[in-house]
Design a binder for these strands. Structure first.
Lengths: 127, 127
DNA sequence: CGCCTTCGTTACGGTTCCGTAACTTCTAGG
DNA sequence: CCTAGAAGTTACGGAACCGTAACGAAGGCG
């Protein structure tokens, strides 16, 4: 889909900048699984079910249930009963989640450009 | 340093692919902080101390101590007493850590290109 | 030598998350 | 109907991690 070419050092340094920025940020820090789930819900075509997400990420269903609970608590996703099969629960996007991910994307883009709050703010000597 | 230009969707989809791959992988799943720490040790010029890393990531020193313990348990980093100041501990790279990050870099690069094990392996319909 | 500061670790209480197993609700097939 | 199976949740015991606070070891300096 995208088609960006990077070398190893570029790739890792982008990752590092975004990762460190993420850790420092006041934003609710999501676990790797929660983040993976959130991104999947927003970037892959619906519908998204607990079962499907669990298989995709190769984790247990309860883990997905918990992640969805946490994310919906933060209002980053929404749960809705499936009318055609009421055993299923559809995990859907929210406005807040869209905003959150848009900001996260900016963070990654800034990292890819070589910017970071820390770098911008100075702090040259040891770190 | 790098200078890559991405748009939001590209950035997020790269992140998603790498994140999902990371969650599924058999690799020891590191927390965001552990990963940020590991990347910093390998990509920023030494020396690296507990204090310095804690300040950089804006977390408590014990958090760094624990992360270093966990990472050295996995042999991804190494602890060495500083001879010039024996209160300090220097966190250093290891062969295994280099290999690990090289593989991780490949994962990101593949994601940036638009590849994924899942995509390559088929699995077209719902996910 | 004493005193004070710094570095890193350990102790502690609390939070979050995990996977297995049991359970509820619903669908589908005979 | 009624039973077999599937989807999701809850219960439970255990593991990992956090930050504050207390602590031991080491350096700096009068």
């Amino acid at each position: 889909m995208s088609g960006i070419e990077l070398n190893e050092l570029e790739a890792l340094d982008i990752w590092r900048r975004a990762m460190v920025a993420g850790v420092r940020a006041d934003a609710p820090d999501l676990s790797a699984r929660q983040m993976a789930l959130l991104l999947t819900v927003y970037l892959r075509p619906p519908p998204h079910t607990v079962r499907g997400l669990a298989e995709l990420m190769k984790v247990s269903k309860p883990a997905v249930t918990r992640a969805v609970y946490r994310l919906s608590e933060l209002q980053l996703v929404r749960r809705k009963a499936d009318d055609s099969d009421r055993r299923s629960v559809l995990i859907q996007r929210t406005v807040r989640g869209s905003v959150f991910l848009r900001e996260y994307a900016e963070l990654i883009i800034a990292a890819a450009r070589g910017e970071t709050e820390a770098d911008a703010g100075g702090l040259p000597p040891r770190y």
